[in-house]
Amino acid sequence: MEVHGKGNVPSQSLSELQILTIMSVPPLKVTEPRRVRKVLISDEHTNAIHGCYQIVLCYENVKQGDHGWYMAGWIVESLARVLLDHPLLAGRLQRMDGTGFEILANDSGIRLLEACYPTSLSDFLELNKRNQHLKTELVFWKEIDAQCPQFSPLCYVQVTNFECGGYIIGISCSLLLAEVFLVENFLGKWAEIHHNMSLQRGEIQRPVFYHPPMKNSKSLPLVNRSESESGVQSLVFKIITEDADSREEMGRELAMLCVEEAERKLESDLGSEFCVMVKECSEVIKVESWSRGEGRELKLKYEMRGSRWEEFAVQEVAFNEGNKPVHVCSWIDYVRNGYVMTVPLPNLKNNAFAVILVSPPLSSLSF
């Protein structure tokens, strides 16, 4: 690997990131019975399947053997193990006749990429302060093909290594499955499995899936790298209500409520039409449009507050003991229009929801 710009903070271009390895990681065992999640959506709203949730976790090396080349190798096994409990992440979308799509846990796998970047982690983070678009180099996303969705992965993981130690784990996940990260604590479970593996492997230092950096290595040709082109911005709300209505109906009403609250906070009109995605249950998601003036008058007893991505526990994810991320950022991208997603939260006493609102591109807004 060539070395560039040691000493002062370099001025790398995005093209200097190298993708060196690509593989698919299925669950450790065949998923039986196959899980299925229906995505009820009309043809006019198929754009709603393109959005993705992205997260970047930055780690320094705190001990020998903790660097990213080993980390990526061990991740293959720990990721395969955690997918046993979340097989839909390794599945694929397929079309259903007339009613939309379904996500089938067919074990096609999460796509895993290994990459390197020719600077130190600290220098890269400094560069990112000046150019926020650099973070898009740390995640990979290829939009789902609505015509042939069965060939499109629903989740990507990229491990990027830096000179002088340090690595970054970047994850992109379809919004149709984003609650696995935001509600079901997928990252925490994955990190726990990974840590337990490190305690059990004893004297084994090098993972089976180990791809060391090679001199004069060339980046694999890739197209459709993840780029923040949409300019969308997102707000997160948490709502608790004692209303007795069905969660399906309540999800729509609360989505509308959050649009109004966001407009009050931002002092801006977010538009008259939104795409609303409601998770009715673990097996069904419904996507529909909502225009102002529709729906009943809200008479809910509720408690609503603004939330932050950090509240979803991503700051504490340590794959190796004592090595928490030094920097974390999360965002939503590839949403072309206004979009609201409501996800039930586990709560025994009340109806609790996380509501994620994605606004259309508005350059005048600041969050």
Rank of each mutant, 00 (worst) to 15 (best):
G109M: 07
G51W: 00
W69N: 13
L357M: 02
L220H: 08
R92G: 01
P361Q: 15
V25Y: 09
V232C: 13
D333A: 05
R81Q: 13
P221L: 11
G68R: 03
C275F: 01
N196G: 04
H133F: 10
S234T: 08
S282K: 14
I240D: 07
S11D: 14
Y59R: 09
R292H: 01
M341E: 04
P153A: 07
T136Y: 11
V343P: 07
V139A: 12
F274P: 06
L17M: 09
K286Y: 08
I55C: 04
A90N: 13
D97C: 03
E163N: 13
S234G: 06
M1H: 12
A105I: 06
Q12I: 14
L84M: 09
N196C: 10
I19G: 09
L362H: 03
L112N: 00
R225A: 00
I240A: 05
L362T: 04
G5S: 15
L40W: 04
V335N: 06
V183T: 12
L79Y: 03
N47W: 05
E248W: 14
G7R: 15
L365M: 08
E60Q: 15
V82L: 01
L362V: 06
D243Y: 02
D66G: 13
L125K: 15
E102Y: 11
E163A: 14
L134I: 06
V326C: 12
R305C: 01
R34T: 15
L222W: 00
M197S: 07
N8C: 13
I239N: 00
E310N: 13
E263G: 11
L93H: 05
E102Q: 15
Q205I: 12
H4N: 07
S282G: 11
L127K: 14
E260P: 03
E294Q: 11
N323W: 05
P325N: 00
K6F: 15
L362M: 09
C52S: 10
M277S: 11
L154H: 03
P207W: 01
M1W: 12
E184H: 08
I103M: 10
E126R: 14
G231E: 08
V82P: 09
P118C: 14
C281E: 12
P360F: 10
C329N: 00
W331P: 07
C116Y: 01
K129G: 12
L125F: 14
R35E: 15
S172W: 02
N323R: 11
F209Q: 09
H133Y: 10
T31R: 03
Q132A: 06
R247A: 14
E297V: 01
L28R: 06
L28P: 03
P153C: 03
G231T: 02
Y53K: 04
S78M: 05
H211Q: 14
E229S: 03
E303N: 12
Q132L: 06
L40N: 08
S174V: 05
V259G: 00
G65S: 13
G65F: 00
E137P: 02
W74Y: 04
V39D: 07
H195P: 00
S268M: 11
C275Y: 03
A146C: 02
K189Q: 09
K279F: 12
S13V: 00
S359Y: 04
L254A: 09
P10A: 13
K218I: 12
G251A: 13
W74V: 00
H195W: 03
P10F: 08
N185F: 07
E273D: 07
C275L: 05
D107G: 07
L176Q: 05
